[in-house]
Amino acid sequence: MTTYKISKDKMNELLSSIKGYDVYVPTELGDKFQFKVMKDAGDAKLGYSQSAKPPKDVIFPQNEVLMNYKIQPNGFDVDQVIDSIGKFVIFGIRNCDSRALKYLDTQMLNGKYVDPYYAKRRENTTVVGLACNTPLYNCFCKSVGAGPHHKEGHDVHLTELDDGYLVEIITDKGKELLANSMSLLAGSSDADASKQAELKQACEAKFVRKLDIKGNDKRMLDIFESDYWRDVSDGCIGCGICTLLCPTCFCFDIQDIGSRKEGQRVRVWDSCQYPEYTMHASSHNPRPGKKERQRQRFFHKYVYSYKNNQMLGCVGCGRCINQCPTQIDIIDVIEGVKNVKEVDQ
């Protein structure tokens, strides 16, 4: 790893010098921030707090054409959309969202089958992380294994200092990305490194909310059938925003568009909060109510993922808390399991 420094006024020049990629940067959208393909370097708002929607959709789009097909007398013509996937940069991703990409890798790339669309997009994406200096009220990444200054999963890591950005080039992909921009970078000093450490400490001290997850997975399994889950999901209106804005949620549906002769097969995001998601053709539903559906969300993130992949399915970004219209608060819910009385089995 090599560390450089760039002054703030040269940042736009650096962004403009990136060629051959679709560069996703945080842009302003009303009072929110949104990752969008950069048209002009001035669009990038690197001082942003958190994007409303995580940039996971660069690698796992909300709607993705899997194949175009046409029926023929002897079979199908299938057009491999996969070959036309371009190259992407996610510029300025926070560690909560980049850790989520690492989590998605365990789901989409591990196991008996590899998801070829995800794999191709992931391979073609360069991740430029940006350290977080001011967490939001509901941020709790430090409690669940991520951290505001963590660099895991980043190809290049940026830290905003008073007079510029510290640029750490971590991987070969990162090196390749900045190959044309090296003239804009200057060397960094020991003072910059100590300033970075200071910022990290200061940021970590700013966290308001914390979650103690030790032993929770076992505890949750013990109270699987408790009425606690009914109580915590009582207000849920089933809108699914908690899952649609979650950086680690990966559930999808596959739908066909077109006629019986030719059409498209499209993958779209789906949510475990919708009744149709699990409903059998016989109309039997293993998760018939909001109790079961919210319980599935908490258990998937805090029990099943940990058991299967030794990684929590929650990165502590706090979006599901911020956006829930009925104030279902995952921190309170998971903390609360400690106080649930044993259920009679």
Binding site: G111, F250, C251, Y277, T278, H300
Partner: peptide, 14 residues
């Protein structure tokens, strides 16, 4: 259970 992908990715049959 209800399934879509069949290859352990889409999440619903758990």
């Amino acid at each position: 259970n209800r399934m879509k992908c069949g290859i352990g990715k889409c999440g619903r049959c758990n």
